[in-house]
Design a protein around this nucleic acid. Structure first.
Length: 281
DNA sequence: ATGGCAGAAGCATTCTGA
């Protein structure tokens, strides 16, 4: 089961690239961030036409998240209000459309677009901190249902130095600060693992390159798009990759897609073997 | 310290992103 995430920086500008990538790669699930479109204008028909179910939660011009899935999308939860009491959520946190949670094949998929935060001394940074605190609350509540869970999206945080091309240059600044890293670590707790780091320990792998300063050509990137999986999915994880080539497209998003492969075949065989043992008794 | 680049809104230029 291929599950992917892509900050597309406007779904309407990136539509043909996303459709082609879906057709070429055939993932079961693709989560989008920064769709930048109101729900009434979301181009859902283009996805239905190639056999995908679609759910979206967006707003005009900014933010916006969506889930595209081959299997039927179930139990859709929009925004923080999908798990938390509305009274707990400030109007500001409710207004920006940044989180969408769905159930697909019994797997909970939580698609997030974490605020960037601008700089540490800005109001936007306070918003980012509040947003992450609310995400933590949200996940504590969601964990009560004990669903195998995939938490993925654009986190706008490089969790470790090896996720930045020049860690010393950006030490303590936005997307790299200890405040942000600590908050993300708290969100993940002992429950979630970074799927990419299960396979790759070294630096040099990026998911985002700034449009400016020739960053992609100079390979000056950051790894800020993450797919975290709950521990009970770890034995199913077969791969976790960054689709770097999509950043080479004409008029690309500044982010590349990231994707994991979850294999449930092994469990089926194990169950069969267990059944055999029981039968032989 | 500022701007570089890109997209949306909307038609000149500003706001936002990362």
């Amino acid at each position: 089961m291929l599950i992917a995430s892509w900050n597309v920086n406007s779904i309407r500008s990136r539509l043909s690239q996303v459709i082609k990538w879906l057709e070429d790669n055939q993932p079961e699930v693709l989560c989008l961030q920064e769709t930048k479109v109101s729900d009434k204008d979301f181009p859902y028909k283009n996805f239905e036409d190639i056999g995908y179910d679609v759910n979206f939660y967006g707003q005009k011009s900014y933010n916006g998240v969506a889930v595209i899935s081959k299997e039927k999308i179930e139990d859709v939860r929009y925004g923080f209000a999908g798990e938390l009491n509305k009274l707990e959520i400030s109007e500001e946190l409710h207004f920006q459309k940044r989180i969408l949670s769905v159930l697909i094949n019994g797997i909970r998929i939580i698609n997030v677009y974490v605020p960037n935060g601008s700089s540490l001394n800005s109001n936007k940074f306070d918003y980012k901190v509040n947003w992450l605190a609310m995400l933590n609350k949200y996940l504590v509540k969601q964990s009560n249902r004990e669903e195998p869970t995939c938490l993925l999206g654009d986190f706008n945080i490089a969790l470790n130095d090896n996720d930045i091309h020049a860690p010393d240059k950006y030490r303590g600044s936005i997307m790299a600060s200890e405040i942000e890293r600590k908050m993300l670590r708290k969100v993940l707790g002992s429950r979630f693992k970074d799927s990419f780091r299960v396979f790759e320990k070294f630096s040099g792998h990026w998911s985002w390159w700034d449009y400016r300063n020739n960053s992609f050509e100079l390979n000056k990137g950051w790894r800020i798009d993450h797919i975290y999986i709950s521990n009970n999915l770890l034995s199913n994880l077969k791969s976790s990759v960054i689709e770097r080539s999509q950043r080479e497209n004409n008029q690309p998003s500044d982010h590349a897609p990231v994707m994991i492969n979850l294999d449930f075949q092994k469990n089926l065989i194990e169950f069969e073997e267990e059944d055999d043992d029981i039968f032989n008794l």
